[in-house]
């Protein structure tokens, strides 16, 4: 399996990349890790005329807390996230997800920016970003913009990014006392894309009342999906077993899975129900620690 011919361009700065992209037009694609894009090119599902390699751009690979935000550079690989002490200690939901994403060699190359920019509801990071209410920072021909995650995913492989926009950073509200998150996906075998996955992030106040909650779903809709009805039910409440039960039920009702090789629609709804409940419990447990 061999990709069709294309022209390769290496960008050494964000500016250069944007200039190249503006010049080459719609037939140009950025490549960061290339572990979503190149497989599609090998199968000739994607046949871009130009590839602009952004992986060599300096300064886009970092994980840090800055003000009240956790900031992750777009070129940070999933392996770098896996081994990062800050994430391990304060954002265990990241470890949950990365451990279940692809395999170690893929994670050595695949970037968080690419995982999100790909706009694929089967990828794991989008659900986490929804749950944690990330902002996506992008640079384009007309400057820098910050896109709330709820405005980011537009459709199947479609995002708010213009063709020449580069996703540069992910910003996530900093973990604080009383917050916690968890992610799990059911997969047919290790490394598989999710049959269904659920990311949950909760923030409790001192009395244990839920101040904020985010629930993102993986691969049970055409576009990465937030479980709005479930979140509303929990916000401002003390989260009880009954509420968790109800949210699981809502998740199974509101998700939009299709029957395929991974299972029937009914099975996937049931899986979403179960994982939603389990991840709510796990997130709560972590929030209460």
């Amino acid at each position: 399996m061999i990709p069709a011919n294309f022209n390769y361009h290496k960008a050494t700065s964000v500016k250069e990349a944007i200039a190249l992209s503006s010049e080459l037009g719609e037939e140009a694609k950025y490549m960061s890790g290339g572990h979503s894009l190149l497989p599609m090119m090998k199968l000739r599902f994607a046949t871009p005329e130009h590839i602009i390699d952004i992986s060599k751009i300096e300064g886009l690979s970092y994980i840090k807390e800055d003000g009240d935000m956790l900031k992750i550079g777009a070129l940070t690989t999933q392996t770098e996230m896996e081994h990062n002490t800050l994430l391990k200690e304060s954002y265990p939901i990241m470890g949950d997800a990365i451990w279940l994403t692809a395999d170690p060699s893929v994670r050595n190359v695949g970037t968080i920016g690419g995982n999100i920019a790909h706009g694929d509801a089967a990828n794991d990071q989008p659900a986490l970003m929804l749950a944690m209410r990330a902002n996506i920072v992008a640079e384009g021909a007309d400057g820098t913009k910050t896109i709330p995650i709820d405005e980011f995913f537009h459709g199947f492989y479609m995002t708010a990014l213009e063709p020449s926009d580069i996703l540069t950073e992910i910003q996530i509200p900093k973990a604080k006392k009383g917050s916690g998150g968890a992610y799990h996906k059911v997969e047919r075998k290790v490394g598989d894309y999710a049959t269904a996955g659920v990311a949950v992030h909760v923030e409790l106040d001192d009395s244990g009342v839920c101040q904020q909650v985010g629930i993102g779903l993986t691969n049970v809709s055409a576009v990465p999906m937030r479980l709005e009805r479930g979140e509303e039910l929990l916000r401002g409440q003390e989260i009880t077993d009954e509420l968790i039960e109800q949210v699981g039920q809502i998740a199974s009702e509101d998700c939009e899975p299709e029957s395929d090789l991974r299972g029937s629609e009914a099975y996937k709804r049931s899986v979403v129900n179960t994982i939603t409940k389990r991840m709510l419990n796990k997130a709560l447990e972590r929030a209460r620690q």
Partner: peptide
Amino acid sequence: ITPAKVWEAIQ
């Protein structure tokens, strides 16, 4: 025998 198949049989 996959989990999905077992689940369907149980239902």
